[in-house]
Write a protein that binds this DNA or RNA. Structure first.
Length: 703
DNA sequence: CACGACACAAATCG
DNA sequence: TCGATTTGTGTCGT
């Protein structure tokens, strides 16, 4: 992992001793937690934070988070096993793993940022081999049935207001340097849905060993000699379009089209929904006479080459609750929130009084704050902001920042709260706070003091209730502020505070909400018996253990003094398909409301919670035959209307020359996808019609 | 103000 | 440990 491991482990033992401390640190000016953390099913955590208030590094694992639970939309056509007549009971299993935060009761995404949606589906009651060895037929509108070539999943976005479809765009890891395409329909076989953590770990794998490790999780290789099962020639598995068949549809690096309007004319937020559709692909002869393309039956997609068109017939559909997409307005980023932050804190007369006995703000210190600090509370930065070098970088912070400031100068303003915070802390604990032009270490006491005395007025009550300076006697160092306005998840210190909100665990800057219900399970799982029933259906109640062990560097938080947090079954409201409006987040009222006992309580099964700050996937590695390697790496891409030329790829030659580690994967950008790569083309962009349009993307990866 | 394009920077990957 | 990669987002220019 990283250099911070030691720090975390070293500090962790202290956590249980300071449960009552750090009650406010994680609270912002408005009294809301800056980060709310939800424990996922697999022990990983989803940290929801408002990008207007807190900027997190682009590659931080905190950018991965489970999104909203999907709700059932409907079942459409029915599928039966050929000859036997057994009806298929299908269930879409989707999950969003990046891109949506639960903020103030709404699911919020960013137009400019990627989101990840993954989905698999299951055929209830079927053994995979049995399933793949069978044949299935689609029950048409009439009495006729149509042979199913394969099953597939597709995704789409819709406006929740007018139900129009919204374009989605997918990028490769190369983003601007690579092609863009619409999320493609993905032929799929039944499979379980990999954990959120697996999706995280597998999100940017280039290492061949690692790719092999995940191969069986995501792919089924038809014809793999190591597969003991022999499939009949006419079985379903043999009618899939490629030998490499996906088990999980992974839609990564997806964005809403940049052209969408995220607001209604009246400036209200538009709401969108992401839909996942499981369908069956049948030959074009499908009789659709009774079909209304825009009715509840979903939509039939026609695709394939002219000579052999196939139809994607929807079988089941699920969707997210309404989503808000924030546009590019500066108001949606921290850079625009600084005035608010500063004024509310900086102008606090209460704080001013307190400051009398302290050193005045020290702008110099802050301006040179290269600090190795780590509090996520520091939403401020004293470092040049990302982006192009500012033309105003010459600004010197000699004086406390004035309250007035033009929007233009804003980005360069210091964060007064930080400035004061640091200085005041230094004044309080001069011996503990190492104040250096380049480095500064803060003590917990100082931090506490700051928040107690400088925190927003709304927090005062909490402060008085929970603050107990005597429980924290030692120089428990909390590296303070730091990577500027970014928060390193590894820097987050875990602390408990069972009194703030009964079932919210305060973990340093994080609030861990331990919940027995997962928003991921049984998504889109309709009542199996009642097809075409859009009504809310029962949720299968899978008891989940919260003490899931994480493969990551996990911090076990002792909860000896805690009891039942939830009563499991009674709290699974966000798995209730009927509750889509308002959207139900991970923090349902039941979850975050105080409980009568006034204690944090967890389910009986919960003895500990593993907070996985950073997943160390190394333990998950395993070996897989190398035979599929070339396939795995042959990721096909198209470059839409773009002509790939020397101009477009000025570094092409360099790539080849620097291609030390890779064998022959290097393929010039203009080359067609090699033969063996075809089987790996499970995720061809939907617009791709000809192999000739394919370009090897490896050149992008091999530098 | 919105969007395409380019740029920077910070964590991850290998 | 360090260079390459990936991705949030700052910024310019239209």
């Amino acid at each position: 992992m990283s250099r911070n491991d030691g720090l975390i482990e070293e500090q962790f033992p202290n956590v249980s001793n300071h449960e009552d401390i750090f009650s406010e640190e994680e609270l912002g000016e408005d009294g809301e937690p800056v980060i709310q953390t939800h424990v996922n099913e697999d022990g990983t955590t989803s940290s929801y934070f408002d990008k207007r208030k807190l900027k997190i590094a682009p590659r931080s694992t905190l950018q991965f988070k489970v999104g909203p639970t999907f709700e059932f939309v409907g079942n459409y056509y029915e599928v039966y096993q050929s000859y036997m007549g057994r009806m298929l009971d299908l269930s879409i299993m989707p999950r969003i793993d990046r891109g949506f935060d639960f903020i103030d009761g709404e699911w919020v995404g960013y137009k400019r940022n990627y989101f990840t949606l993954v989905s698999s589906f299951e055929a209830l009651g079927w053994n995979l081999d049995e399933f793949l060895n069978s044949c299935f037929e689609l029950q048409g509108d009439g009495s006729q049935r149509y042979p199913i070539k394969y099953f597939a999943i597709s995704i789409k976005a819709k406006s929740d207001d007018d139900h129009t479809e919204i374009s989605l765009v997918q990028h490769t890891a190369k983003r601007d340097k690579g092609p863009q395409f619409t999320p493609a329909m993905t032929p799929l076989i039944p499979s379980s849905l990999p954990n959120h953590q697996i999706i995280r770990e597998a999100s940017n794998v280039r290492n061949t060993t690692k790719m092999k490790k995940y191969d069986t999780t995501f792919y089924f290789h038809r014809g793999d000699p190591t597969n003991p099962v022999e499939y009949a020639g006419k079985s379903l598995i043999n009618s899939y379009p490629n030998d490499c068949i996906q088990k999980v549809a992974r839609y990564e690096r997806v964005q809403f089209a940049s052209s969408i309007n995220v607001k209604k004319p009246a400036q209200q937020n538009r709401h969108f929904r992401l839909h996942v559709v499981l369908g069956a692909v049948v030959p074009k002869g499908f009789d659709r006479r009774d079909y209304s393309s825009d009715g509840l039956q979903g939509s039939i997609l026609e695709f394939g080459m002219e000579t052999q068109k196939d139809l994607f017939i929807p079988l089941q559909e699920v969707r997210t609750p309404p989503l808000i997409i924030r546009g590019r307005s500066p108001s949606n980023y921290t850079s625009s929130q600084r005035i608010a932050v500063r004024t509310s804190s900086y102008n606090c007369s209460y704080k001013r009084e307190q400051s009398d006995s302290m050193s005045p703000p020290n702008p110099m210190l802050a301006s040179q704050n290269t600090v190795t600090s780590q509090s996520p509370m520091i939403v401020s930065s004293n470092k040049p902001r990302p982006g192009r070098p500012s033309k105003r970088t010459s600004r010197v912070h000699h004086l406390p920042v004035p309250l007035e400031s033009s929007p233009q100068s804003l980005p360069q303003l210091l964060e007064p709260p930080l400035v004061e915070l640091l200085d005041e802390k230094a004044a309080l604990e001069p011996f503990a706070a190492v104040t250096s032009a380049v480095r500064r270490v803060e003590t917990l006491e100082n931090i506490e003091n700051f928040f107690q005395t400088q925190g927003s007025l709304e927090l005062k009550d909490f402060c008085h209730q929970n603050f107990d300076p005597h429980t924290e006697g030692e120089s428990y160092k909390l590296p303070w502020s730091s990577r500027q306005n970014s928060v390193d998840p590894k820097d987050i210190e875990l602390k408990c505070d069972k009194e703030i909100q009964d079932n919210l665990k305060t973990v340093g800057p994080l609030q861990i909400l331990a919940t027995l219900k997962s928003q991921n399970c049984n998504n889109g799982k309709p009542d199996v018996k009642d097809k075409n029933d859009n009504v809310d259906i029962g949720i299968s109640e899978k008891k989940r253990k919260l003490n899931a062990t994480s493969t990551a560097t996990a911090l076990e938080l002792s909860l000896d003094d805690t009891k039942e947090l939830f009563d499991g079954d009674g709290l699974k409201t966000d798995e209730n398909y009927a509750q889509s409006d308002p959207p139900v987040g991970p923090f349902s009222p039941q979850n975050i409301g105080p409980n009568p006992a006034g204690e944090l309580s967890f389910g009986e099964e919960l003895n500990s919670i593993s907070f996985s700050l950073l997943a160390d996937s190394s333990s998950n590695y395993c070996h897989v035959p190398n035979t599929t390697l070339s396939d795995m790496e042959a990721v096909p891409r198209i470059f839409e209307s773009r002509v790939i030329s020397a101009q477009d790829m000025p570094n092409n030659n360099e790539y080849a020359h620097n291609n030390k580690g890779s064998q022959q994967e290097q393929i010039s950008t203009g080359d067609l996808l090699p033969k063996e790569g075809h089987d790996a083309m499970c995720t061809l962009p939907s617009q791709m019609a000809e192999v000739g349009e394919l370009y090897e993307e490896l050149s992008f990866y091999r530098h």
